[in-house]
Design a protein around this nucleic acid. Structure first.
Lengths: 138, 138
DNA sequence: AAACCTATTGAAAATAATTTTCATATATCA
DNA sequence: TGATATATGAAAATTATTTTCAATAGGTTT
């Protein structure tokens, strides 16, 4: 949270109770949350928090690389915190649950440039789809 | 296209000029296209085609596993055809261009079950972010 | 080929998510 | 504490997507 304070100061932004509430909601909530869910959770600490402010704060945190967007196929964008531990997702195609998996064999390629077309790789995202234990029949 | 005809028949759907136009637009267009783009392209062959029908056809093709959704962070969902050749994407963070990359070392894990939590992997998606050749300074 | 029946279509209306506007409130700094 | 520019909440506006419904047109049967 202190780190955030620094980040904001550097960029000329202000640290407000709204921003703290949204950030806390993101970090304490599920792996991925919709804007509505983040809003609900954050209102625990700050009941007067407006939905518009949640949208604005998420935009801010996205630029500050504190959160990441993820789209699961229903009409709404979800957000998750960018943690120190790089991870990917297991997405159950039956119940929709999202679980994180740590460990990644792609990290060594960060910074690499592909010979075929000169594309320089700076990051990646991997989503594994399938069925969680609870959703396997038989 | 004949394959599609079969697919539709099996499911009790009809093969209409609209559906053919949308499918053709998807296959002949860029790697990923927005609904609006698909609509514009398809109107070349069928000017009377309505946007609603494009949405409906994409939903149909999604269920028939002919197309896949992808979200690039602007507010709209994009679609791409599911081709026989499994591939992933190189997404330029500067200009937004999307290029396909073939070859995938994750395929052997399809069907595998993770020991840690019993999750059965059935498919995956990998997106590589970075800078395309044209967008690298220096 | 004509008739039938049901799936499909286009346009407009409705919805849902997200963004913009604007007057008010409040962090931050002198 | 006061000045000031940024941030906020509510409402309005916008944008993407879905639903409604009367009209159309596949595909099958005769």
């Amino acid at each position: 949270m202190d780190e955030l304070r620094q980040e904001l100061k550097i960029r000329g932004y202000r640290l407000t109770s709204q921003r703290e509430a949204v950030l806390r909601a993101i970090y304490e909530g599920a792996c991925t949350q919709s804007v509505e869910e983040i809003h609900e959770r954050a209102k625990q600490w700050l009941p007067s928090l407006g939905l518009t402010t949640v949208y604005r704060t998420l935009e801010l945190l996205k630029h500050a690389r504190k959160v990441q967007e993820i789209y699961l196929g229903d009409g709404k964008v979800r957000y998750e915190p960018i943690l120190e531990t790089h991870h990917h997702h297991l997405i159950c195609q039956v119940c929709g649950k999202v679980e994180p998996v740590e460990g990644c064999f792609l990290s060594p390629f960060e910074g690499a440039t592909l010979v075929r077309n000169g594309f320089q790789i700076l990051g990646h995202r991997l989503e594994l789809y399938g069925r969680c234990r609870d959703c396997q029949e038989g």
